[in-house]
Write a protein that binds this DNA or RNA. Structure first.
Lengths: 295, 295
DNA sequence: TAACTCTATTTCCAAATAGGAAACAATGTG
DNA sequence: CACATTGTTTCCTATTTGGAAATAGAGTTA
């Protein structure tokens, strides 16, 4: 029996409060979790969890053992991190969470380059826009833009700086007239991004401009696509619009106006020793973005 | 792969300096040890041992990892000991070393009683008269009589007190005459015990008596058997002669004379937390011998 | 109270793995 | 230069693992 794995699962079961959740997250069947926890209890000669079908509760013994498990597992990770530091050969898996649009645009080429350079490191990338608890889902790293509400127990580090771009297609501009000052936006189809901090006020000009339009969406890539098709104007992070601007599919307007800066943050758990592959990855990202003009 | 077991084996391999020795002691094939150590290295992505067919040498990484392994494994044992302390249900295996004669006589009934009372505890008893290194062979407990040269890293505790008896068979005494004073021994067939501290001087009377006889042996049980068969007189620990004296097979002579006392020592490794089954076992022995008149 | 839903557990079976015997390779020894 | 000893590899079987599905149990809702 793989006792270490059982211990890891035990810790997860307690933090998740459910066998099934752990099974789902870990990618094994719940029968496995059940069997292994039982085997662990059998092996220890003690019941760790008081189970009912609806609720799990740590026994006194389980409480004590849990703390020791956490400690032991942390030390084990530390030992392996140390080995890899000595070996200079980053290995293992990184479980990464990133916002959907970010992953589909700015991160993809950077990740690809990393994977080419370090063939021993495996990536487990979860793209999602829901802000889920990194700790509970055992993410090694979270990548978020301009989010300052960091999970407790995580460290935030700035990886890159982005800015916004206001985009429209040439066809659209020709049809609806040019945009030369912020106030011109008042008469245009301006698309609202659902999660945008300032809602329907675009932060350009002295006091911002209240915009309106027929489309509101929760995904900037989708909005960009609508812009490409000449349906309106978008306030779009440059890392998303970059390619379309290069290719001429869309044009930037009000480029000279000041727009609020954004930062890409790396969030990772506070640990005594972070595994080398993690620090390596973060440093790699930082350098990659610097080299691509997003320093 | 059972990484914990691999780590244990790795530590053992280093202390023993050999795969084969560990295989023999652990009771698995050497191919297993080899495979598991290799798997551990593979898993870590680092070589731990520099091997030649004749010599093993820790790599720098191995040295670091070894220390952490020791630490982690100790903590794991501690955690499990703690669980069992909370549960009050001693479980697991005790690997015990004891002198041959001791095991065959005094210890056997005590061990049997222990096994009846605590069915969850397994015993792995090694009887041998060679004084081997308890630590290197991973013994939880050593039982030795009057030995004060404790291994380093072990704690010694007195379990019981024995005395000697001078024995002869009724037939022998009838044939060779009675033994009423220490000096009478000079004219008798007195058997010498090879490992006896005082060699051929029996410590009775004012200055001891130099004895001689046709038999010298390194096993008191064997000597007792010779005594039973009427071949001579033996200076025999009472825990060995006890039964024969009770049954009348042999008779005690010079019972009133002072003889040097012996102590039964329990030797066990110094640990932060000894497993409950070990402290339980030692306390049990102590009590058992007290109840049987050897306090 | 009954149907329902979401748990953990058990059962059963196919697939993977563990683990030993023996052949093999390599290195220090006499 | 044989020899003895040690770690590795190979090959094969017995065991174990682990998932799908059935089962069982407890809270929730109609």
């Amino acid at each position: 029996m793989d006792k270490l794995r059982a211990m890891r699962w035990f810790v997860q079961v307690v933090t998740q409060g459910s066998f099934s959740k752990v099974a789902e997250q870990t990618g094994v069947s719940k029968s496995m979790i059940s069997k292994q926890i039982s085997a662990l209890e059998e092996n220890l000669g003690a019941r760790l969890l008081q189970r009912s079908t609806r609720r799990l509760k740590l026994t006194q013994t389980g409480q004590d053992y849990l703390a020791r498990c956490r400690d032991i597992l942390a030390q084990l990770d530390e030992a392996e991190a140390q080995v890899q530091t000595l070996q200079q050969t980053p290995k293992g898996r990184l479980k990464i969470n990133a916002a959907m649009a970010l992953g589909l645009t700015a991160l993809a080429p950077a990740f690809a380059e990393f994977m080419r350079r370090y063939p021993q490191v495996e990536l487990d990338v979860h793209l999602s826009d829901e802000s889920l608890d990194l700790l509970e889902h055992n993410f090694d790293l979270g990548l978020r833009v301009a989010s300052c509400s960091f999970d407790t127990g995580y460290v935030g580090k700035v990886i890159a700086h982005f800015d916004y771009s206001i985009c429209a297609s040439a066809a659209y501009l020709e049809q609806h007239g040019p945009i030369r000052t912020p106030d011109d936006l008042l008469n245009h189809q301006c698309f609202e991004y659902s999660y945008f901090r300032h809602k329907n006020i675009w932060p350009v000009g002295a006091n911002g401009v209240p915009i309106s339009g027929r489309l509101k969406a929760n995904n900037s890539v989708f909005i960009l696509d609508m812009v490409k098709q000449g349906l309106g104007v978008g306030f779009i992070p440059r890392f998303i619009s970059h390619q379309a601007l290069q290719s001429g599919e869309v044009e930037e307007v009000l480029a000279e106006e000041d727009k609020p800066p954004m930062s890409l943050y790396a969030l990772y758990p506070v640990r005594h020793f972070a595994p080398p592959r993690l620090t390596l990855f973060i440093e790699f990202l930082q350098q990659w973005f610097a080299e691509h003009g997003y320093g």
